[in-house]
Structure formats: structure tokens, C-alpha cells
């Protein structure tokens, strides 16, 4: 499976996801996680880092792909956008782990085969610990809407917040989680 040959299909999933199709969005993230895993494993192997770090980066990238999906320009191909985010996350990871790596090549991304074997590896991201650092509002909104799968209306009724408040809290909460996830290994 090569990401460039899959471009039309992946882009279709992305566009459906942007229009609110949850199944398409999950399918896209699942497909991309395999490509991202291969990409990060290849680069990290060169500096002697293992699959757990790669899985961290896969998850950080997935959160970034999700929370920043409004930055995708619908008229452009998807693959360069995905790898620009992956590369940014990788460079940021190298900076905060103080590894020096003179150059991360851009053009190798599509030459590595996808790696579809996440079963053995878990990332070091502990969702519960990260969630504990959110504001109570954001934590509750994410708990109801994203983890328990309640609709925005149900979550609003149960928490006493307004619907728009719930939506904003989920959005801000995910962005905060993304930041917490990337700062975790800085400490």
C-alpha cells in the first residue's frame, strides 16, 4: 500500500469527514495511522528510538490532523498536507528530546511501505492523566461527547451547559490535549 496511489480514496474520505461523516473520518485516521507509523519508525530507527516513541508520534499526529483539519484546503491534494503535519511533529519531537538530526527529508515519505501492526505497541500517552489536566468544563464535555458518545444535546442537558458551550469546550479541550501530549515528554 502506497499513500500516493491511495490519494484519491484518502482525499475522498477526508472530504466526507470534513462534511461531518464520522465513519469516513475514522476510516481515514485508521488508514493514515499505518502510513504515519511506517514514516516515524523509519526515521526514529536511524537515531535509535523504538516503536513506543513512534506510536507516541502517530497519536500526536492523529490529534493534530483532527484538531487542525480546518487547515486543509479542499482544492489541494491530501498527502502533502498530512506529511507536512507529520514532519512538523517529528521535528518538534526531535527538538524537545534534544536529538540532533540535521535534516528530515521531505521526499521520502511516500517511499516507505505502510506499517499496519499497532497491536503490540501502546503509546506512552495516558488519556486519563492528560484529561485530569484539562479544565473541568473541557474534561466533562470531552467525557460526554467524545468518550461516552452522547449527542451534544444530551451532553448539554446532563451538564447544564449550553449546546454551543459544549461544542466550544470539546474543541478547546482537544486542542489542549494536543498541547499536553506534546509537552509531556518535555518534562
Amino acid at each position: 500500500m502506497n499513500i500516493r496511489s491511495d490519494e484519491p480514496e484518502l482525499r475522498g474520505l477526508m472530504l466526507s469527514g470534513l462534511d461531518g461523516d464520522a465513519a469516513a473520518h475514522k476510516a481515514l485516521l485508521t488508514r493514515l495511522s499505518a502510513n504515519l507509523r511506517a514514516y516515524f519508525k523509519t526515521h526514529l530507527a536511524r537515531i535509535g528510538k523504538g516503536p513506543a516513541d513512534a506510536e507516541d508520534l502517530v497519536q500526536e499526529s492523529l490529534i493534530a490532523l483532527h484538531t487542525r483539519r480546518h487547515t486543509y484546503d479542499r482544492s489541494k491534494p491530501l498527502t502533502p498536507w498530512v506529511y507536512a503535519i507529520a514532519r512538523y511533529r517529528l521535528v518538534d519531537f526531535l527538538r524537545r528530546t534534544r536529538t540532533s538530526m540535521t535534516d528530515v527529508a521531505i521526499d521520502e515519505a511516500d517511499q516507505v511501505p505502510a506499517d499496519d501492526d499497532p497491536s503490540s505497541v501502546e503509546s506512552g500517552l495516558d488519556l486519563e492523566k492528560l484529561m485530569a489536566q484539562l479544565t473541568p468544563k473541557a474534561r466533562q464535555a470531552i467525557q460526554f461527547v467524545k468518550l461516552e458518545g452522547l449527542s451534544v444535546g444530551e451532553a448539554a442537558a446532563r451538564s447544564g451547559m449550553s449546546e454551543s458551550d459544549i461544542k466550544v469546550s470539546v474543541h478547546r479541550g482537544l486542542k489542549a490535549l494536543s498541547l499536553l501530549a506534546t509537552q509531556r515528554s518535555r518534562a
Binding site: A22, A23, H25, K26, L29, T30, S33, E55, V58, Q59, L62, I63, H66, P118, E122, S123, L125, D126, L127, V145, K146, L147, G149, L150, S151, V152, V170, L174
Partner: peptide
């Protein structure tokens, strides 16, 4: 956290 769990969470609602 497993990556599948994360994807599931991100895609919900």
C-alpha cells in the same frame, strides 16, 4: 493508550 481507542474517540460525534 491504543491508537484505535484514540481514533475512536476523535471520530465520535
Amino acid at each position: 493508550m491504543k491508537t484505535d481507542e484514540l481514533i475512536n474517540m476523535l471520530g465520535t460525534n
